[in-house]
Amino acid sequence: MERYFNRIWYQTPDPPLFLVLLSLVYRLVTKIRKLAYQRNLLHTSGVAVPVLVVGNLSVGGTGKTPLIIWLVAFLRKHGYHPGVISRGYGGQLSKTSTPALLPRNANPVLYGDEAVLIASRTTCPVVIGKSRLSAARHLLLVSNCDIILSDDGLQHLALQRDIEILVIDGMRQFGNQHCLPAGPLREPLSRINTIDLLVCNGNHFPGAFRMDLVGQTLTNLLDQQQQPVSFLRDKPLHVVTGIGNPQRFFQSLKLQGLDFDTRTFPDHHNYTAANLQFDDDSPILMTEKDAVKCYHLANRKIWMLPVEAQFDSTFSDALKHLLEEKHGRLKTT
């Protein structure tokens, strides 16, 4: 099913008519919902601290998690104490209505791979919950954060936000530009016009700041040994992924001179030992998002490649300006 829709969304300019008709219904429902918020039939509520929402228009992976991690470091540099709210996709607790603060060494099966990755990389408080508003309120109750980053909350209109950042997949962009299910868009493309900052992952897009995800150092899952990516060159290699857009990861590895076969699973896949079994002793490589779910399966063959988001100074300057504009000041260290 996933392959079917990816082919229609990203390789076919004219989707089947029945999907276009369903897309029109979807757009009508989303428009009515938005009007309900605008006319106070549904209510938007704020919290006592600024809220920055990081989201996307298209389904699937665009690079939000590395950006959230970068934003946490940026905000700390300028004197803030950030916290993160997330749905906790893929985790069992994401199906419950009660918000939950991630404990130390949180289990990704319970809390979701992205939330656990953010918490482990940033050590900032992370709360997951179905309702972004409830999660934000809970975060303020259990932490001293003075600014909130909402992971993938662009369409969660119940939570008032101060700044919206939209992440665009530079490889696939917006596909055939249809809304679900005829295309990959959660909202019409015109939504771009209301966004504060556009970020394009790995490419240029009109009006967007370019973000590059750079990974140059491998880490072994068993003993945390580190090696340059060149360590795996000219070796048989298995690359295993369970992410939204694995092709972007594969392309980045090829650009670094690696040759490999692939084994792909759906986004947020929970791994078993059988998923990592091969008929040889060749090394296995995965993303850091996959790795947080595989430490209990670790052996010396398994490596991960963490990535860091990189921008030029224009993005930092634009974000500083927005914070000053919205709140009248920018904290400094």
Rank of each mutant, 00 (worst) to 15 (best):
A318R: 11
G90T: 02
L197Q: 09
D169C: 04
P99N: 08
L41S: 06
K64L: 02
L28V: 02
L19R: 13
T272P: 12
H156V: 00
F18D: 07
E325Y: 10
A208D: 04
P228D: 15
K31H: 14
A135H: 01
Q92G: 04
Y37G: 03
T217C: 13
L255H: 10
A208N: 06
L19A: 10
L237P: 08
N275P: 15
R233H: 01
D223A: 10
S131D: 09
H178A: 10
W70Y: 14
K130D: 07
K235S: 07
A73P: 13
Y80W: 11
T287E: 02
V20R: 11
T122M: 08
A36S: 08
N105L: 13
V167P: 00
T98V: 06
D261V: 15
L67W: 06
N193V: 09
L133Y: 06
P228I: 11
Q310H: 15
Q11C: 11
V214S: 12
Q92E: 10
N107K: 10
T30H: 13
K289G: 05
K64Q: 09
Y4G: 07
N203E: 03
Q247A: 09
D281H: 14
L140Q: 11
V29S: 12
K235P: 00
N299E: 05
Q11E: 15
T96G: 09
A135M: 06
H268N: 10
P66E: 00
F205L: 11
Q227R: 14
R7E: 06
S23W: 05
N40C: 07
T62S: 02
N176A: 14
T219K: 15
I69S: 01
K77F: 02
Q227C: 08
V72I: 12
L75Q: 03
L67V: 09
L185K: 05
Q225L: 12
N270C: 08
S282N: 12
L185H: 02
T12D: 14
D280V: 01
G88H: 07
L24T: 05
L67D: 00
L117M: 12
F265P: 13
V49G: 04
A318C: 14
D279N: 13
I118L: 03
Y37S: 04
S134C: 06
N176H: 10
L117T: 07
G83Y: 07
C124L: 03
